[in-house]
Design a protein around this nucleic acid. Sequence first.
DNA 1: GTCTATATACAGATAGAC
DNA 2: GTCTATCTGTATATAGAC
Lengths: 181, 181
Amino acid sequence: MSRPPRARESVLDAFEATLIQSGERAATMDATARAAGVSKGGLLYHFASKEALEAGLIERLRALVDDDIALMAAAPEGAVSYFLRTSVMDDDPLDRAIIAVSRLAQGGSGAAGTALRDMRLRWQEALRPHAKDAAALDLVMLVSDGLYFNNALEGGVVSGAVPKGADLDRLIALVEAAARG
Amino acid sequence: MSRPPRARESVLDAFEATLIQSGERAATMDATARAAGVSKGGLLYHFASKEALEAGLIERLRALVDDDIALMAAAPEGAVSYFLRTSVMDDDPLDRAIIAVSRLAQGGSGAAGTALRDMRLRWQEALRPHAKDAAALDLVMLVSDGLYFNNALEGGVVSGAVPKGADLDRLIALVEAAARG
DNA sequence: GTCTATATACAGATAGAC
DNA sequence: GTCTATCTGTATATAGAC
């Protein structure tokens, strides 16, 4: 599989950005085409239906999660610390894809919900060797879910819910201590 | 303010149920009217617009959170334990209202997002005296967010993400130990 | 490969009868 | 207070020109 056409990628970028900034309701085919700088017909050449467009975004997410799990396994600071730190939205491609797919899931897309559950499960299995028991693993996963949940609600807007900087360091230290046992 | 008409409440029940079971996209005025057993015109007598319907659900959530915070403050097992235990979906009125309003927020409703942030802030302030420091409070809030997030994604469907029974007890003990200091 | 024009369906909302 | 009928806007998708 050679690399996909540029136009196809920019359609996906536009769809993702609209989902994040304006929500699922606003992420129509028309709005996506406009944001990508193509016509509706042009978009439909690359993605023959709304479902195909969503599947394209889900596939992008899957590939980014592959990369991230490899990075996590090799992180010098430890897998748990890496995992929690990267659970705070940084506007990187993976974070953006997760939030966009979350919006699809809440909008009723079953495929998006399944993809998110798969993603979570893959992280959980990768982290299992780093937690002392099942409760510790639950703790790490749920704190991460909480961080992502607040990111997804805020959509990039600042609010007090997600700790940053030194506050985040202290939180991670607390979770690591509890998880290491 | 006397108690609202029964028909009004059953419209709100139907809207909530549709949001939970089928997502925001499916929770149309038409579907809500059908599920409530009234006509579209009948629904619009009670709620003159979609926005008014959403506001009705948000107001219901606010009232339920009032009650819950009072219960949490008086809980014999302690506020943190009560808070986490009730963060696992039990299909009670408060859980249902939270999940339904979460769906609205993801669908793009600014009012729903604001209501959820308000709710979270009120719980956070009620719990602050029960945590040893800011990181401990963050930990408790984020685990709760994580529990709710998974509930909201699952929509009542069973999956392995949310611990139950003895697993939940062990998780709560772990968080309490970390939060108490 | 990208465009315009159009078909079809359904959303939210109004008018007015009963 | 609840109904039916209808208006208007907009979403997805198709057809076919360039």
